[in-house]
Design a protein around this nucleic acid. Sequence first.
DNA 1: TCTTGACCTTCCCATGATAGGAAGGTCCAT
DNA 2: ATGGACCTTCCTATCATGGGAAGGTCAAGA
Lengths: 132, 132
Amino acid sequence: MIQDMTIGQAAKSSAVSAKMIRHYESIGLLPKAQRTDAGYRLYDEADVHTLRFIQRARSLGFPLETIRTLLALWRNRRRSSAQVKDLALSHVADLERKIAEMQAMVRTLKHLAHHCHGDDRPDCPILDDLAG
Amino acid sequence: MIQDMTIGQAAKSSAVSAKMIRHYESIGLLPKAQRTDAGYRLYDEADVHTLRFIQRARSLGFPLETIRTLLALWRNRRRSSAQVKDLALSHVADLERKIAEMQAMVRTLKHLAHHCHGDDRPDCPILDDLAG
DNA sequence: TCTTGACCTTCCCATGATAGGAAGGTCCAT
DNA sequence: ATGGACCTTCCTATCATGGGAAGGTCAAGA
């Protein structure tokens, strides 16, 4: 028997905060939840399944707009796996670009810090670099 | 002779947009600029030097609040280089943590994508993973 | 039955760094 | 004097998330 649950319970079983569940509904990422007479949102197992899908996709860094598309593909039995793979690989490319940027920062900073005495004296190659 | 310049010229010579220069002033990262009678902001070479400092620090990924501190240290002749080095290395640690997170995402995504045919068929290990 | 506490609702505001745009004023060259 | 390039302030948006206020609901225990 599938029990309906309140937003707090759905939040716990999906690891998506109640705040975010409401937000996802407000931007149309989730369909409008059913309501009790008192106005409380109600969720069933299928809803929680969707929430877990979103949670997992977020944990892999997918932006919500991409998740919107992924959800549509998930629900579409006539999808092509190529579409999904394209989304994933283009997200990988985004991540790798950002990683490379940050690695360049790290390289420069470590180099500068390596040459900085890090003692009580004011002389500092890091500030010298920033000051140009 | 050091010529004063308008915000647009200061923007060009510092690679900081006029929009951002105003913003930095509004949050107190920059002192209030001098003004002409008509209310136009005026900048001199020292101001541009500060703007370049900020620009360079931003390009190394320092958050504005840290840059606020870095600027203070830069101006303080009695600073210790240890303080600067600490800020830089703790920023490096932040970057490395974020890099590691993203690398984990990339690893997972590449693994999943590797097992996805990427053809016209709907079967997709990526969606299977997201669906749990 | 009443109270209490845990839950729910909506609405507004904040984050961090940046950009876009509207409405209006200024300055300079033609 | 006119036009265009510049400046001003103010509001809005991005992206994903959280905090909190004010108020309604529900279930359990006294």
